[in-house]
Amino acid sequence: MGLPKANRLKHRRDFVAVYEQGIRRHSRYLILRALLEVSINDSLVTEPTRIGISISQKVSKKAVIRNRIKRQIRAVFRELLPYLPGGWKIVIVVKPKASECKYEHFLRELKQLLIEAEIINGY
């Protein structure tokens, strides 16, 4: 089961905007890039946080391994979604060493990266 449709970052222009204007935090296995969307009309309705995952063939030549890593990262975000405030665009870039990671590593690292980027509060 993937992320809800409203929480998916799908378009190339969104990825490019996050890469060009967003903040960057990194850990051993992951790079987090995030951009806070600015509301034009300052309404109380905010967009939901949207998440994209970027993983290259440098991580593994096998699509099975790359897809397993993406599934694990999506599962971590499904768990963290209630804690994420609205209005963020987040791109996770997977480093080549991540093929040896387990779910718990991704959970710990993503929590730490989100706290460092001040997207969620440390608790």
Rank of each mutant, 00 (worst) to 15 (best):
Pro4Trp: 02
Lys5His: 13
Arg8Tyr: 07
Lys10Glu: 13
His11Glu: 12
Val16Glu: 14
Ala17Val: 07
Ala17His: 04
Gln21Cys: 06
Gly22Thr: 14
Gly22Ala: 13
Ile23Ser: 15
Arg24Leu: 14
His26Thr: 13
Arg28Glu: 15
Arg28Cys: 05
Arg28Asn: 11
Tyr29Lys: 01
Leu32Thr: 08
Ala34Phe: 09
Leu35Pro: 10
Leu36Ile: 04
Glu37Cys: 00
Val38Ile: 11
Ser39Pro: 02
Asp42Ile: 04
Asp42Leu: 11
Ser43Ala: 12
Leu44Met: 05
Val45Lys: 09
Thr46Gly: 01
Glu47Tyr: 05
Pro48Leu: 02
Arg50Glu: 07
Ile53Asp: 00
Gln57Gly: 14
Lys61Asp: 05
Lys62Met: 13
Val64Leu: 13
Ile65Gln: 10
Asn67Thr: 12
Arg68Val: 11
Arg71Glu: 13
Arg71Asn: 11
Arg74Met: 07
Val76Ala: 01
Phe77Ser: 07
Arg78Gln: 12
Glu79Asp: 09
Leu84Cys: 08
Lys89Ile: 03
Val93Met: 02
Val94Lys: 00
Val94Pro: 03
Val94Ser: 00
Val94Ile: 09
Pro96Val: 07
Lys97Met: 09
Ala98Arg: 09
Ser99Gln: 10
Ser99Ala: 10
Tyr103Gly: 00
Glu104Val: 08
Phe106Val: 11
Arg108Asp: 10
Arg108Asn: 09
Leu110Val: 09
Lys111Ser: 04
Leu113Val: 10
Leu114Asp: 14
Ala117Trp: 10
Gly122Asn: 13
